[in-house]
Each structure stands twice: as structure tokens, then as C-alpha cells.
Design a binder for these strands. Sequence first.
DNA 1: GCATAATGGTTCAACATTCAACATTGTTCC
DNA 2: GGAACAATGTTGAATGTTGAACCATTATGC
Lengths: 158, 158
Amino acid sequence: MPAAEPAPPATRWLDADEQRVWRLYLEATQLLVRRLGSELDESEHDLSMAEYELLVRLSEAPDWSLRMSDLADDLVHSRSRLTHAISRLEQRALVQRRSCPEDRRGVLAVMTRAGFDALAAAAPLHVTGVREHLFDQLSAEDVAALGRICGHLAEHLR
Amino acid sequence: MPAAEPAPPATRWLDADEQRVWRLYLEATQLLVRRLGSELDESEHDLSMAEYELLVRLSEAPDWSLRMSDLADDLVHSRSRLTHAISRLEQRALVQRRSCPEDRRGVLAVMTRAGFDALAAAAPLHVTGVREHLFDQLSAEDVAALGRICGHLAEHLR
DNA sequence: GCATAATGGTTCAACATTCAACATTGTTCC
DNA sequence: GGAACAATGTTGAATGTTGAACCATTATGC
């Protein structure tokens, strides 16, 4: 007689409340990024939210430059996605590629002056959106809770 | 003399703490959906997370059927996106289209038995992921807070 | 040293999403 | 009843994303 499969542990289903929270989380997140995205889109600034975030990271880095893979990890993007995104920004002269001195496999993404200007031009609109649609909707306690929660989740998932 | 432009209200920038929360929120969310997506992807179940969510909504609807636009709104997807997604699922016979009796503009998406089976097969894995990566990481208070927070945000954005 | 493995990044093709244009049906209001 | 308008879905093209295969370089083990 063949050995029986070990019984898989019973699934711990979500109760009604957990389902509600999970769906609200997905819905709120989708609505938020869609709203911020369309506000940017309808403006004269020709940046997507992903491009905005990318330029923000570069703007904070020494020499406005970061290794491709660091940037990808920061943004939680695949390597491939970052390659394409940087190529598009490079076409538009908002970013340049430079080879990395220490590691000849490496590539540095360097924001140009034009990149900085584009970021600076879009920043007021975008930040206003984040404030209006996120922080203005929440009490100080809830903002603190959101930080704590996302910190836990990110730490677990990283 | 031409009238001066009214001065735009000064941007209320994010302070360091708000920036931290905002980035953690984006990072945690990306990490979470990426993780859940890849767990589904690596399994034998041939469903993306978006397809899973779509089938879930249908599974809860009377007759396993919903109007296209209701489904799109539920999922916070564009009409076009839903059209394409349903077409792909229809190719795979997991969903069917039927015309809507009351409104001849309308189209009903109806889940098939095969669709239900695919959903049921994938559910234990996916639900286990949501529990493990989300609910198991948070205290009961934080889960409640997350629900409250996302409820506020969604209500404001809807 | 040299073979092997691991890392960094790009490429290509498949796939998914968006946007604008369109066709059809419903609604409003005169 | 008919004209304008709104709502529902679809289409096709452009764009963005993914995952696997790939090349070049660096690290590791013997």
C-alpha cells in the first residue's frame, strides 16, 4: 500500500472582517494611485507617477546618481522594468547613463539638470495631491498607525 | 497694467515623517502584491492576482454574473481593461459573456463552472499568502486601524 | 590560476494596460 | 417624436511590464 500523502494543513480562511479589510486596502490603494496618476497626467508635466518616484530617488542621491540595481530595489521594480524606464527617460534627456568606476558590470543612472527641473515643476502638484488625498483624510494617530503597519509589512517582505 | 496672476497657495510639503509613511506605504504595497502575485505565478494555478480577484467577485454574485461596468467599478479597473481581461478569460472558458436583458447596451460577465473550479483550486494558496504576509504580521489593533484608514481613503476617493 | 558560480544589466518576445475613437442604446427635455 | 446628450462596451494602436535567455564582469573554491 502506497504511503498516504501527508494531509496539507487546513487553510485558514479569512473571516468577514478580514475580507473587508483586505478589499478596502486594495481598493483604497488603487483609487489613490489612479487619482494621483491622473492628476499628474492631466497636468502639463509629462511624468508618470513611477517616473516621478524614480527622479525623486535620484534627486536625493549624491551626485544625483544611483546604481541601477539600487534604484530598482528602492522602487521595488524588476531590473528589466528599470532598464526600460531609464531608457525612456534617457531619450528625453532627463537622465543619463554612466558606467560605474568600481564595478565594470555596473551602470549609474544620473539625473540631468533637465530631469531635476521636470521634477521640481511637477512636485507642487503631486505633493498637494498626496496631502489632500492621503494625509488630510487621516488623523495623526492613523498616520502613525499606517506608518507602523507598513513598516512591519515591508520588513517582513523585504 | 495687466492684472497680476493670483498667487498660487504655497505648497504644503511633506515633513520627514510624512515622507517616510508615504514611501513605506508604497513599498509595502508593491512588495505585498508582488509576493502574492509570484506565489500564484509559480504555482500550477494559471491565474494572475487580478484574474483571481475578478473571479472572486463573480463567485459572490447571484448567478455568478455581473454587469461589466459594475465589475469594473468594484475592481477599480478601466472599462477597457475589463473588456480585455474578460476576453482573455473567455478564451479560456472561465467566463462567458451574455447580453443583459434589461439594458441592451449592457453585457453580463458570467463565470463558468470551469471558472469556479479554477478559483477554488487557487484559493487555498492565495488566502494562505494573504494571511501569512498581511494578517499574521499585524496585531488585531493594527488590522482594525488599517480597515478604518482604508475605509476613509476609499470613501474620499470614490 | 582556473573552473565554476554569482551578480549586474540588457534584450527580446509575450503579455497587459491605457488612451482615443467608435458604435449602440438610453435618457432628457422641448 | 426628435435632437442632443449620457452611458455602456468594444476596438486597435501605442505604451509599459514581465520573465527568460543572454553577455560581461566579478567572486568563490579548489
